[in-house]
Amino acid sequence: MRKYAVPIFIVAVLILPFLYLPALSAAGEWKHPSLLPVSWTSGHWKRLFAAHGGIMPVVTVSFLLSGIVALLTTAAGFLLGRLLAGDPGRRQIQAVGYLAYAFSPVIYAYCLQFFFLKAGIGGTFPGVLIVQFLLFFPFSVIYFISYWGRNMMALEELCFTLGASRRAAWMQALLPVSAPALRTAFFQIFVFSWFDFGLTQVIGQGRVSTLSLTVWQYMAEGDPYIAAAGSCLLLLPPAILMLMNEKNIRFRP
């Protein structure tokens, strides 16, 4: 056991949110210097589902937003990744992709705010959807350009020489073969969108309520218990997706 003291410590610190947040959300009273809650309650969760019209509409908006963004961005990246896979300017494409992908979302949103307001989509669900698509799109393309490597291109050619039409090659071979990669990209972009705070805050102008923004509101109101309950909801989908897809995770802190 002593041999593993260091990794155990690292694991313990890293998974702290998964232990602490559920505990805090169910704590009746947990004040300094108690190491554990003095009493337990389900009151904060009840409040979470009741306050401001309840959390469920917000969760629904978040799911819809992240689902649509992930679907569109994955599909667009998959197609464009294929079309650009053999491009001689791949390096340049990746450099541009990195630049856009690494840009701070909140500053990106402020850069575009004017155009979104002009187009009349500031403060709307489609506006937030579009801005998220624009920011996550380069990630998706870069991911799929790498995916469409030598093997996948060879597989496509094999289909053609076996007599498959473009449509048959895609429907019967390339799409089914790519299912794991598509799933990974979908989950990943879903999580990026689910985490997003800055883009939605600026482009949504407070009129598009996602779970992140609502949890932030609870934090700002100084109510740690209900903020903890909301945070649990925020953690849950990514943790489940992570479980389904742990080998293929890319990062975006």
């Binding site: 890293l14 702290l16 998964f18 805090l24 992140s212 949890v215 740690p224 945070s231 992570m242 742990e246």
Partner: peptide, 22 residues
């Protein structure tokens, strides 16, 4: 163990910040 080590990537920055406060 791999899952436990990888799991924290599913902590959003907002939650990480909240953990910092707490």
């Amino acid at each position: 163990i791999r899952y436990l080590l990888f799991l924290p990537v599913s902590v959003p920055p907002l939650t990480a910040a909240f953990m910092g406060v707490e």
